[in-house]
Amino acid sequence: MQWNVTRYTRFEASAGIDDNTTDAFGVVVELLLYYQDGRQLVAMAVAASVGHPQEISLDLTGVVSLRATCSGRNAKTNQQRSTYAALGDARIIHA
Protein backbone atom coordinates (compact mmCIF):
# COMPACT_ATOMS: atom_id res chain seq x y z
CA MET A 1 0.00 0.00 0.00
CA GLN A 2 1.17 3.50 -0.67
CA TRP A 3 -0.24 6.88 0.31
CA ASN A 4 0.57 10.45 -0.66
CA VAL A 5 1.04 12.11 2.74
CA THR A 6 2.28 15.56 1.72
CA ARG A 7 1.18 18.14 4.32
CA TYR A 8 0.08 15.47 6.79
CA THR A 9 1.74 15.19 10.17
CA ARG A 10 0.91 11.74 11.64
CA PHE A 11 -0.05 8.21 10.69
CA GLU A 12 -1.82 6.17 13.36
CA ALA A 13 -3.26 2.65 13.25
CA SER A 14 -3.58 -0.65 15.07
CA ALA A 15 -1.82 -3.46 13.19
CA GLY A 16 -3.07 -6.99 13.66
CA ILE A 17 -4.13 -10.23 12.03
CA ASP A 18 -7.44 -10.14 10.21
CA ASP A 19 -10.26 -11.85 12.17
CA ASN A 20 -11.14 -14.00 9.14
CA THR A 21 -7.68 -15.58 8.91
CA THR A 22 -7.85 -19.35 9.44
CA ASP A 23 -5.19 -21.18 11.48
CA ALA A 24 -3.68 -17.90 12.63
CA PHE A 25 -2.43 -19.23 16.00
CA GLY A 26 1.38 -19.04 16.03
CA VAL A 27 1.50 -16.63 13.09
CA VAL A 28 3.13 -13.20 13.22
CA VAL A 29 2.50 -10.46 10.68
CA GLU A 30 5.25 -7.93 10.15
CA LEU A 31 4.56 -4.49 8.75
CA LEU A 32 7.38 -2.35 7.35
CA LEU A 33 6.93 1.35 6.64
CA TYR A 34 9.06 3.27 4.13
CA TYR A 35 9.82 6.83 3.02
CA GLN A 36 9.34 7.79 -0.63
CA ASP A 37 13.02 7.02 -1.35
CA GLY A 38 12.82 3.46 0.00
CA ARG A 39 14.40 4.06 3.41
CA GLN A 40 12.62 2.43 6.34
CA LEU A 41 10.60 4.90 8.40
CA VAL A 42 10.87 2.72 11.51
CA ALA A 43 13.97 0.80 12.59
CA MET A 44 12.19 -2.54 13.04
CA ALA A 45 9.10 -4.17 11.59
CA VAL A 46 5.87 -3.73 13.53
CA ALA A 47 5.02 -7.31 14.57
CA ALA A 48 1.54 -8.41 15.64
CA SER A 49 -0.01 -11.77 16.46
CA VAL A 50 -3.45 -13.11 17.34
CA GLY A 51 -4.74 -11.18 20.35
CA HIS A 52 -1.69 -8.91 20.35
CA PRO A 53 -2.27 -5.99 17.97
CA GLN A 54 0.39 -3.29 17.85
CA GLU A 55 -0.28 0.43 17.92
CA ILE A 56 1.49 2.50 15.29
CA SER A 57 2.06 6.24 15.62
CA LEU A 58 4.46 7.86 13.16
CA ASP A 59 5.61 11.42 12.64
CA LEU A 60 5.17 12.24 8.93
CA THR A 61 6.97 15.59 8.97
CA GLY A 62 8.85 15.88 5.67
CA VAL A 63 7.43 12.62 4.29
CA VAL A 64 5.89 12.84 0.81
CA SER A 65 4.91 9.23 0.24
CA LEU A 66 4.30 6.50 2.83
CA ARG A 67 4.58 2.87 1.69
CA ALA A 68 3.71 -0.20 3.74
CA THR A 69 4.56 -3.83 3.07
CA CYS A 70 3.39 -6.84 5.04
CA SER A 71 4.48 -10.44 5.41
CA GLY A 72 3.47 -13.36 7.60
CA ARG A 73 5.65 -15.96 9.27
CA ASN A 74 5.44 -18.86 11.69
CA ALA A 75 6.53 -17.53 15.09
CA LYS A 76 8.53 -20.66 15.97
CA THR A 77 10.14 -21.65 12.66
CA ASN A 78 10.23 -18.24 10.94
CA GLN A 79 8.95 -19.91 7.78
CA GLN A 80 6.99 -17.60 5.55
CA ARG A 81 3.25 -18.01 6.01
CA SER A 82 0.35 -16.65 4.01
CA THR A 83 -1.94 -14.59 6.21
CA TYR A 84 -4.04 -11.44 6.16
CA ALA A 85 -3.04 -8.36 8.10
CA ALA A 86 -5.40 -5.61 9.17
CA LEU A 87 -4.95 -1.93 9.96
CA GLY A 88 -7.64 -0.94 12.42
CA ASP A 89 -8.65 2.69 12.91
CA ALA A 90 -6.00 3.79 10.39
CA ARG A 91 -5.82 7.52 9.96
CA ILE A 92 -3.52 10.07 8.38
CA ILE A 93 -3.75 13.30 10.35
CA HIS A 94 -3.47 16.82 8.97
CA ALA A 95 -2.09 19.49 11.27
Rank of each mutant, 00 (worst) to 15 (best):
M1G: 14
Q2R: 09
N4H: 08
N4I: 07
Y8F: 12
Y8Q: 13
T9E: 02
R10N: 12
R10D: 13
F11G: 01
E12G: 12
E12P: 03
A13F: 04
A13R: 04
S14G: 13
A15Q: 02
D19A: 14
D19Q: 11
N20L: 12
N20C: 11
T21P: 02
T22Y: 06
D23G: 13
D23C: 06
A24E: 06
A24Q: 05
G26Q: 07
V27F: 01
V27S: 09
V29Y: 00
E30L: 10
E30D: 15
L31T: 06
L31Y: 12
L32M: 15
Y34N: 05
Y34F: 15
G38E: 09
R39K: 15
L41I: 07
A43M: 10
A43R: 15
M44F: 14
M44H: 15
M44Q: 15
M44N: 15
V46Q: 08
V46W: 02
A47L: 03
A47T: 11
S49F: 00
S49V: 05
V50M: 11
V50S: 07
V50W: 02
G51A: 05
G51K: 08
H52A: 14
P53K: 04
P53E: 08
Q54E: 11
Q54T: 11
E55S: 10
I56A: 05
S57C: 08
L58R: 06
G62S: 04
G62A: 05
V63Q: 08
V63K: 02
V63T: 08
L66P: 00
L66N: 04
R67S: 12
R67V: 05
A68E: 01
A68R: 00
A68M: 13
T69R: 12
T69P: 00
G72Q: 02
R73K: 15
R73A: 08
R73W: 03
N74C: 07
A75L: 08
A75I: 14
T77E: 06
N78F: 14
N78S: 15
Q79S: 04
R81F: 02
Y84K: 14
A86D: 06
D89H: 14
A90Q: 11
H94Y: 08
H94L: 07
A95M: 00
